[in-house]
Nucleic acid binder design. Structure first.
Length: 1026
RNA sequence: GGGUGCUUAGCUCAGUGGUAGAGCGUCGCCCUUACAAGGCGGAAGUCGGGGGUUCAAAUCCCUCAGCACCCA
């Protein structure tokens, strides 16, 4: 005996995996037939931040199933593995780790040292992840493992590769084509990481917020009659006012207001449009005046209908400011504190005043230099500043007032009916607001005006839309397609620069603007005192984009014709420029943009980058475009859409032919898995407890198209039991010397049983192929489960037992067939359950190849199926199940062998009985079958096709039980017959329905009528007897 | 506010117009020499409500309700 009592996954799985690796079984092209088609999948690279979670497991299991399936079918298969450097996430994890270990902080150690530190983190994390992927059974070509930052300047030995080159090349190419540009835009600013982030990285959370109502006094002396009317144009309120009422959820941004806007149709404010009003904060002697303008943006029915416009700190306001030429005053610095740079408030406020009065215009950069934060608020946190401002306004009596019991005050509203409740208090609405948070930092995002790099998505989006519209790329399920179109049709410019240290540094170098090209001394040829903001890196420099530093130098040199020196950073640059000014320097400094690229910019190149692009490698030619991308629907925008856009714009080819989007993994209650909820299912724990194959089978069985994966540990148990079932089948085969025969060719059995199980196998093969072809992993798993357990184990094994005891010929034939069936079970299950199947494969005979490279069968099953054998076996199974059911319902003790009577048995059923009497008797526990012409009193009747059977119980029969049993069946049949008859009586059905359906309906009706008649007879007889 | 889904057995979910399914659970019987992580049998659903299209609707359309996710 080679097989143990049970399969020990913990020991066997690592051993089997090693054997595959030792045999180079995963290598690109392994097991490919000559001139075969290629099949390639790029792994969605996991982040080098931690360890694998269930989502990764799910994702990679599906890929592995497809890869193994194609490899067995002889495709030239590549599964490209690798990891992602995950800029912000990895930087965050590393810093957290450093803090835990009491290492010096990032800023303390400096950029170069920090980069090295992150590489260390990467190396550890990558090792963890890769070993976990291997534990899942992932059959990637590990010799080709890639990393999105391989070959970066900072990369230590052993981290060479082409990816960095590819990223830089793409940036430069896109820059040269005008697809990448630099600009001052309002971006989502993360004050914790002090970087811009893309809008996809912002999560909106509903929180309890407040809306303050303030009075903006009109410029001195101006008043108007504020009138409110109802729908019928009747005046319901009228008052003389010297202010305009403004509502805001962010009082601290009032300091940067550039205007107050009202809707052009809003008659209430028509008298004061064009007038100036005063921002009610800041030193009293220098309050700023801003214009009241009209714009379509304010909603007259919301709040007071008047909106303050703070272009530098609100996305909607920014648009209004741009179209009305309103200045955008930035109030905060990189860490979200109120600005403290530049000259005093009084000086800057004076400049701002002259702008709003139209006395001067400044450019964007000059406006950005204006700091309108009053001196006493400078350096404060934005939320501290808010409370100071609110307090000051209250004190001055410039808040809009209301009674203390006004319900819109929310929880602070008084609900008493006394005098106190009629007291006037400032109107501060309590209401839920959507607050933007950084998905990594979890701090409130600040809209901030900064210089950033953008991809001009609008120029590259149409090719990406067309690729999917024209079905060159197929997205599954269909809903993914809709989402894709919706997003791409409303796409915004993509901000790709990040103020981080971990990532691909942007290949742009900055230098001073040249005033004139002459032989004058250097200090006269360059603009030394450029405008710049050190904090937000708002460059006012000349710049060049180039693939290398050398090329950048050359680019500058060709226009300047001077000696050029690259300095470390902006600080060094400023110092050098000062030296230049004081004639202490002979070279002109330039420095590289310190920012790095958004991680998704580099992962957007994953398909071509991993294949060696920009080099024209043979892998690139062979495996690109890839066959399919398997990924979660949550990164459709982040990754999938961008890969499509970028690949099309760079190599003018689609990156993959199909996209299969799977659902997200949830806990058994459908909630997101999160550490804080404590509902995370760790795939490695599942593997420890149930084995990888159970995890894989469960995953596959639950991976229905469009559904989410709600994990319930009870499912793992169920499918673990399935692996045991398979193991026991193999043990049974071993026990009957099935392992010892060789069955390389198609068996040609003569026994019905063997023919039947071959039919079932062909059918299963067909169905599994169809299921996998259409990514219906759940169907594939369920079909195999039903076949192996419900057909092979429940019936084939049982029926084979007497054949194994018969003479040599039948025994040998059954051994041959069972070997063939076992092999097919192993082959068909292998993509889903690779370990246990490979293990049994190895134990169950001498094999030319490992199962991973076994040939996936390719029969055209229709020609092979023997319908006669199917009919015979179905009759038998039906008979046995009926007898079993009858026995239980008639309370016949399970152990007893009974006498069964047969009546009106036709030739066909007689023959089936004769051929299979031994096994039927055994499985139905029948002592003898006796032919009778009439059933004696006390016989329970069982109608069957071509016969009537009876279980004689004599006095033992429970008439009531028997009557219940028969009537129940009778009732059900009557109902079905009625419905079928009704259908067949409809002329419309007969004319409209397809012939096949009509025929089937006739057959169904005939079958039921025959059965109904027999039951009816039995019921009549029962009544006579009782 | 906009978009996308979901609602089927006690639970978790399949089911793309033709006789309602699976796993788990549950109830009863059984240690029948591959398997008690098992065998055999049973109970359990007006397919969220309403309307429509069709010979035929869980399935297609409309509508209402509840839930989830994504984007403002």
């Amino acid at each position: 005996m080679r097989m143990n009592k049970t399969f020990d996954a913990k020991i066997a799985e690592p051993r089997v995996y090693q054997a595959w690796e030792a045999a180079n079984a995963f290598k690109a092209g392994a097991n490919a037939k000559p001139n075969s088609e290629t099949y390639s999948i790029m792994i969605p690279p996991p982040n080098v931040t931690g360890s694998l979670h269930m989502g990764h497991a799910f994702n990679n299991i599906l890929q592995d199933i497809l890869i193994r399936w194609h490899r067995m079918r002889g495709f030239d298969t590549l599964w490209q593995p690798g990891t992602d450097h995950a800029g912000i996430a990895t930087q965050m994890v590393t810093e957290r780790e450093m803090a835990k270990n009491k290492e010096p902080s990032r800023t303390a150690m400096g950029r170069k040292a920090f980069e090295q530190r992150v590489w260390q983190q990467k190396i550890t994390s990558r090792a963890t992840i890769i070993s976990q992927l291997k534990r899942l059974g992932a059959s990637c070509d590990w010799s080709r493992e890639a990393f999105t930052m391989s070959g970066a300047q900072s990369a230590p030995t052993g981290e060479e590769g082409n990816f960095h080159d590819a990223v830089i090349k793409v940036f430069v190419e896109m820059y040269n084509k005008g697809l990448v540009y630099r600009g001052k835009r309002l971006v989502n600013w993360d004050p914790h990481f002090e970087t811009a982030i893309s809008d996809l990285e912002v999560v909106s959370v509903e929180t309890c917020g407040y809306m303050w109502h303030f009075k903006y006094p009109l410029q001195s002396g101006v008043t108007y009659t504020y009138v409110e009317k109802d729908e019928n144009n009747h005046v319901i309120f009228s008052e003389e006012r010297d202010y305009i009422s403004i509502a805001t959820t962010r009082p601290e941004t009032m300091l940067g207001d550039g205007a107050v806007a009202v809707h052009p149709c809003d008659e209430r404010y028509a008298p004061i449009v064009g007038k100036l009003c005063e921002i009610p904060v800041g030193p009293k002697e220098a309050r700023r005046l801003i214009p009241i303008i009209t714009d379509d943006y304010p909603d007259p029915n919301f709040g007071s209908g008047a909106v303050k416009i703070t272009g530098a700190h609100d996305f909607n306001d920014y648009v209004v400011a741009k179209r009305n030429d309103i200045p955008c005053y930035r109030l905060m610095n990189a860490s979200g504190k109120m600005r403290s740079d530049g000259a005093s408030y009084l000086q800057h406020a004076k400049v701002a005043m002259s702008i709003s009065q139209g006395q001067q215009t400044l450019n964007e950069a000059e406006i950005d230099n204006i700091n309108l934060v009053p001196d006493n608020l400078r350096g404060l946190d934005r939320f501290e500043a808010r409370s100071c401002i609110v307090e000051q306004i209250f004190k001055e009596g410039l808040a809009v007032m209301t009674t203390a019991d006004n319900p819109i005050l929310g929880t602070t509203a008084l609900c008493t009916n006394d005098e106190k409740s009629k007291k006037l208090v400032p109107l501060v609405e309590e209401k839920p607001i959507m607050q933007p948070y950084g998905d990594r930092s979890n701090v409130i995002i600040e809209p901030m005006l900064t210089d950033q790099w953008f991809v001009d998505t609008s120029s590259i989006v149409s090719a990406a839309l067309n690729a999917v519209k024209s079905d060159k790329i197929e997205i599954l399920p269909d809903s993914g397609k809709k989402t894709y179109f919706h997003w791409l049709e409303n796409i915004e410019p993509w901000c790709i620069s990040r103020q981080l240290w971990w990532g691909h540094q942007i290949p742009v170098w900055y230098g001073p603007h040249m005033i004139e090209n002459s032989s004058k001394p250097l200090q006269d040829r360059f603009n030394i005192a450029a405008h710049y903001s050190h904090e937000l890196k708002t460059y006012k420099y000349d710049y060049r984009c180039a693939e290398t530093e050398q090329e950048a130098i050359q680019a500058f040199h060709s226009i300047w014709n001077t000696e050029i020196e690259v300095v470390d950073d902006e600080t060094a640059f400023i110092k050098a420029m000062n030296e230049l000014k004081s004639c202490n320097r002979t070279s002109v400094p330039i420095f590289r943009d310190p920012d790095v690229l958004d991680t998704w910019f580099s992962s957007g190149l994953w398909p071509i980058g991993t294949l060696g692009w920009p080099n024209k490698t043979k892998e690139f030619k062979r495996y690109f475009p890839t066959s399919v991308l398997i990924t979660g629907q949550d990164i459709l925008f982040f990754w999938v859409a961008r890969m499509i856009m970028m690949q099309l714009s760079i190599v003018n080819q689609i990156p993959f032919k199909k996209v299969y989007l799977h659902g997200l993994v949830r806990d058994e209650n459908g909630r997101k898995m999160s550490k804080s909820l404590g509902n995370v299912v760790d795939p490695l724990e599942v593997i420890e407890e149930f084995g990888t194959d159970s995890l894989r089978f469960t995953t596959s069985a639950m991976a229905s198209l469009g559904g989410m994966l709600k994990l319930d540990r009870r499912r793992f148990i169920g499918y673990r039991n399935f692996t045991t079932k398979l193991w026991n089948f193999a043990k049974f085969a071993e026990l009957n010397a099935v392992f010892d025969v060789t069955a390389n060719t198609l068996p040609q059995p003569s026994h019905t049983l063997n023919k039947w199980i071959m039919n079932q196998t062909f059918k299963t093969l067909d169905e599994v192929n169809a299921a996998l072809e259409t990514f219906r992993f759940n169907d594939a798993a369920n079909i195999l489960y039903a076949f192996v357990w419900g057909k092979v184990c429940d019936w084939y094994v049982e029926f084979s037992k007497p054949l194994f005891q018969q003479q040599e010929k039948a025994k040998l034939e059954t051994q041959m067939t069972m070997k063939w069936v076992l092999d097919h079970c192993l082959i068909l299950l292998h993509p889903i359950m690779p370990f246990i199947t490979e293990e049994i494969w190895g134990l169950s005979g001498k094999r030319k190849k490992m199962l991973i490279h076994a040939e996936w069968p390719d029969y055209s099953s229709r020609d092979l199926i023997d319908t006669k054998a199917d009919h015979e076996m179905n009759w038998i199974i039906d008979f046995i199940e009926s007898i079993r059911s009858l026995r239980v319902q008639m309370s016949v003790p399970a152990g007893i062998y009974v006498l069964i009577l047969a009546r009106k048995m036709n030739k066909r059923s007689q023959k089936i009985w004769d051929n299979n009497a031994t096994i039927i008797k055994r499985l139905a526990r029948i002592k003898e079958l006796v032919q009778v012409t009439k059933f004696p009193k006390g016989t329970a009747i069982l109608p069957a096709e071509g016969a009537e059977f009876g279980l004689p119980l004599a006095e033992l029969i429970d008439f009531n039980a028997e009557e219940t049993r028969l009537s129940k069946a009778h009732k059900k049949l009557q109902k079905e017959i009625k419905s079928l008859k009704h259908r067949l009586s409809q002329q419309k059905f007969l004319t409209n329905a397809p012939e096949e359906v009509i025929n089937q309906t006739h057959v169904n009706l005939a079958e039921r009528e025959e059965k109904e008649k027999k039951i009816n007879d039995a019921l009549t007889r029962l009544k006579e007897m009782s």
